[in-house]
Design a protein around this nucleic acid. Structure first.
Length: 154
DNA sequence: GTTCCGTATATAG
DNA sequence: CTATATACGGAAC
């Protein structure tokens, strides 16, 4: 079972066997990963992210097959929201010719929080909802240093 | 500040 | 098909 760590876009993968080093690999290219490697890198990336590092999750693929076409459309749109940026449900609704409530409904089905950054979608007057609790949404936005207005940051 | 509709989508009956 | 529930927004008290 390989272990990985990452610093400044350099990823080190260590494979141990019975307490001896079997292999160490160094990598900078973080695209075109094998599927088996994907999960390892993902844990590492999420760790970096939670440490406040800017991480690009677009290179991961997320299975949205069991969601409706509309939900897939919204979630794929949300993936494009840049790190540290917030948009409102209404802005996305206008963009996709639908209603703010419909946007929220689709986001509530997000199967992969953080990787699909639905926490960057907030209400016009407040933070809006979050399937795993608004406190966590606030935490993630804080990690990113997102500017969500002085009214409702804590 | 509240409360009340309008809206789009999903789900249950 | 109708009714109900929403991670909203805006108008009206």
């Amino acid at each position: 079972m390989p272990h990985t760590l990452s610093r400044d876009n350099l990823t080190v993968t260590i494979t141990l066997y019975h307490n001896t080093i079997r292999e160490i690999t160094l990598s900078k290219a973080r695209h075109g990963l094998k599927k088996a490697e994907n999960t390892i890198y993902l844990l590492n990336d999420i760790g970096d992210y939670l440490d406040g590092k800017r991480v690009d999750f677009l290179r991961y693929s997320v299975d949205l097959e069991n969601l409706t076409d509309f939900q897939q459309l919204v979630l794929n749109k949300v993936r494009q929201i840049p790190y540290g940026v917030t948009v409102t449900y209404g802005m996305l609704a206008k963009d996709l010719q639908t209603s703010p409530r419909a946007i929220g409904g689709a986001l509530s089905k997000n199967p992969a929080p953080i990787v699909i950054p639905c926490h960057r979608v907030i209400g016009k007057h407040d933070l809006g909802g979050f399937a795993w609790g608004v406190m966590i949404k606030k935490h993630l936005l804080h990690v990113e240093g997102a500017s969500i207005g002085p009214d409702f940051i804590a």
